[in-house]
Amino acid sequence: MTSLYTHAGGDEGLHRLEEVFYTKVLADPLLKALFPKARPHHVQNLSWFTAESFGGPDRFTRNLGFEHIINVHRHLRITEAQRQRFVDLYMQAVEESDMPADQAFRQAIREHVEFGSHVAMQNSHAETDADLHPLREVPHWRWDGDEQQEPAP
């Protein structure tokens, strides 16, 4: 079965998606506190994370490691409204970046972003390592084209 990575257009498609998304969050009044300024490698890092999670190359793990994403979210104190806005903007970016329109693909992306945003929100409020979400590696989002599954542990 085709991976989400391949179905999304590989590196080119995911980079396009993350560029559209990042532009949206930088301009969003609710999310500005979480993204106070543009960071030169943010789109690349987001693209690497999404690609790896969707079945592509493991560049995020090799170059940054999962601890990086934990540290980025630590102490941000993401609110539920910010988390939901993040998901909404991501799905708008999916629409605007010429991603495949089939329902199963779009649902897999939504579930991936919902899951990830909940992990980020929990980690953003963690006072100790014990408060962090137990996920310690890039989740590998499985998709068979018809139904999605939770990420592999």
Rank of each mutant, 00 (worst) to 15 (best):
S117F: 08
L14T: 02
A81T: 02
Q44P: 00
P57V: 03
S47Q: 08
Q103G: 00
T61V: 05
T79Y: 03
T2L: 09
T50K: 02
H15Y: 12
D98I: 01
A120V: 12
H15D: 06
E67A: 14
H75V: 02
S47A: 14
D131G: 12
E95N: 09
R74P: 03
D88K: 07
P40E: 13
H42Q: 13
R85Y: 08
Q103I: 04
L4S: 01
G145I: 04
P40S: 11
A120N: 08
E67S: 10
Q44V: 13
E52Q: 15
G9W: 02
V25L: 07
P29R: 07
A130Q: 11
L132F: 11
Q122L: 13
T50P: 00
E12I: 11
M1L: 01
P151L: 05
T23V: 05
I109N: 01
M91S: 02
P151S: 11
V119C: 05
F60H: 11
F115S: 09
E150F: 11
R106H: 12
S97I: 06
M1T: 12
Y22C: 09
N71I: 03
M99W: 06
T6E: 14
H68L: 02
R77P: 00
E80W: 01
G56I: 04
V113D: 01
F21D: 02
E96C: 04
T23G: 15
V113W: 03
P29Y: 12
A93K: 05
E80V: 03
P134G: 04
F54R: 00
V25W: 02
E12K: 15
H41K: 14
V72S: 08
K37C: 03
T2H: 08
L46P: 00
R106D: 06
H112F: 14
G13V: 09
T50I: 12
R110I: 00
H125F: 11
H73A: 10
E114F: 04
H7I: 05
F54M: 12
Q149I: 01
F115H: 14
R74K: 15
H112C: 13
R85P: 04
E12H: 13
H42V: 04
A33H: 09
S124Q: 08
G10M: 10
R142V: 08
R59M: 08
S47P: 03
K37E: 13
L34Y: 00
S97C: 07
E147G: 10
L89W: 07
Q103A: 14
A8N: 05
R39M: 14
Q92F: 01
E80A: 11
Q84V: 07
L26P: 06
T2W: 01
P151M: 07
G116N: 14
Y90W: 15
T50F: 14
A93Y: 01
A81Q: 08
R62Y: 10
R59K: 14
P36E: 12
S124R: 03
F105M: 08
G56Y: 03
P134K: 10
A8S: 13
N45Q: 15
A104E: 11
E95C: 08
A101P: 00
T2G: 00
E114H: 05
P36V: 04
P57D: 14
A108S: 13
P40M: 08
R77V: 00
R85S: 05
G65W: 06
L89V: 05
